[in-house]
Amino acid sequence: MIITKPRDWTRILGNLDEVGAKRVFIMGCGQCASVAGTGDEKAILQAKAALEQSGREVTGWAIGEVACHLAAMRLETRKRHGEIESADAVLVLTCGSGVQTVADSVDKPVFPGLESVFLGNVIRHGVFEERCQMCGDCVLDLTAGICPVTTCPKGLLNGPCGGMWAGKCEVLTDRECTHVRIQRRLAEQGRTRVAEIPAKDFSKKLKPGSINMRAPKDEGEGKP
């Protein structure tokens, strides 16, 4: 899921001041930001109280079922048309993706209420760790299911680097070096490691990403 965290509140108030927003509508998200507890009802009510304390009025709030879904967000904002129309700005407690669907769905100034930080695994309730950077050219087949791109702080495909000491990572010294883990797990599974993983093809992950599943498929791509 997409991990979000609270954003500097003075910056948010500054944003609202810039457009002279006295009346604000708040949008949350029923997916990731709800699991993270940053864009659920509780978080929205907290933001509402803080806005009211700063002398602003909250015209209404909603939790988009999937805030990053453009068609669904258009529908959601249409349903709340009156409350949004009477607001001077919309504060969005979702990831940056959700903020943009809201910005594309309403005519009012829209501001991010959270920081979007990474694609995270839920380790346990409230504890998230980044395990994948969605590089578009997955090497987990070669690395025993441990991502070097993400979990090696330097993102090295071949390692360990010279900073590894006693199996520990140079950068995150309380963690085991990713490359030590990879090679140990490969050995445990009786697998031989590839001699050298070649340089990453960053053209596999050009910005902005775009996929159209409805377009005719390339030969040899996609289906098993």
């Binding site: 330097k154 993102g155 090295l156 495909l157 071949n158 070649p198 340089a199």
Partner: peptide, 13 residues
Amino acid sequence: AVFDIDSTQLVRA
């Protein structure tokens, strides 16, 4: 941090 390639890959280059 760039780390576009690692030192093995740089040696090969």
